[in-house]
């Protein structure tokens, strides 16, 4: 069975469009707000939504998402909360949902139980920044032929050998990290990024989405020039506590830039 993520990228490809993939932190500052925000993201043209599950020690994240995780933890948000939330969300929307979390949140939940509960709730994919394919054999085994994509990351530092390994393990799409650094950093693209993506495409048919450090419509537009999808996290999270009209305007400006 084709996952909702794969189906979405296929549909976009037919329409010659690129995916807009916004990220928000679930439970920041509470789940009611997260419900509102999911509606806003969808209304503003998100193709796929990444939902962060808060963890106490998010070592791949910059200050914006660290603070969001802290607020979410303070409101009592857990993996259970987020899975239940996705389950209730499925009564009103079929937009592909990806959970982004650190491995300990899954490990403590129990690998197998997590996979079963996530699939039952209608989660479509997971991104686990501290779980390279080398450590993901268990989860890969559990998700074989199941409708839950594990999306692995590639970085500017990845060697050819790493690229092959990551590409081989990935499903749904490949998450290409735009910069050598953590989320929310200033975007300073290495000139070779377009070549690097072409290089990845030579060994994989999977769509490639690019994230980390993308904050302006100009950034997004440039990235959309060579990627299949654009992921925006910190810059959105920063605006979710401000007025919603400004947030919507910002999201629409990103949507228009991603073509």
């Amino acid at each position: 069975m084709k996952s909702r993520i794969a189906a979405k990228f296929q549909a976009l490809r037919h329409q010659n469009r690129k995916a807009f993939i916004p990220y928000i932190m679930a439970g920041d500052p509470d789940m009611l707000r997260t419900r509102e925000l999911v509606g806003i993201l969808e209304d503003c043209g998100a193709d796929i939504i990444e939902l962060g599950v808060p963890f106490s020690d998010p070592l791949a994240d910059g200050p914006t998402i660290q603070a969001a995780a802290q607020r979410a933890l303070e409101s009592g948000t857990t993996m259970h909360t987020v899975i239940d939330f996705v389950s209730s969300l499925r009564k009103c929307t079929q937009i592909p949902i990806i959970l982004m979390t650190y491995y300990n949140s899954i490990f403590k939940y129990g690998d197998q139980r997590f996979i079963e509960d996530a699939i039952a709730a209608g989660v479509d994919g997971i991104i686990v920044p501290d779980l390279p394919p080398d450590e993901a054999q268990g989860l890969l085994q559990l998700t074989r032929k199941r409708p839950l994509d594990i999306i692995f990351l590639l970085a500017p530092t990845s060697t050819d050998e790493r690229i092959r390994k990551v590409v081989h393990a990935s499903r749904g799409f490949i998450y290409y990290v735009s910069i050598t650094g953590i989320t929310g950093s200033k975007l300073s693209l290495e000139p070779s990024i377009a070549e690097r993506l072409a290089h990845v495409r030579a060994v994989s048919d999977l769509p490639i989405a690019v994230g980390f450090g993308i904050s302006t419509p100009e950034d997004a537009s440039m990235i959309a020039g060579f990627a299949d999808g654009v992921i925006v996290g910190s810059a959105i999270v920063r605006r979710t506590s401000e007025n919603d009209e400004d947030l919507k305007q910002y999201l629409q400006s990103l949507r228009q830039a991603i073509r």
Binding site: L59, A60, Y103, P129, D130, L131, P132, D134, E135, F152, L153, L154, A155, P156, T157, S158, T159, R162, V166, V177, T180, G181
Partner: peptide
């Protein structure tokens, strides 16, 4: 094991 972001794996 080695539970780190891909960016660090090559290093």
């Amino acid at each position: 094991g080695r539970f780190v972001p891909e960016t660090l794996m090559p290093a």
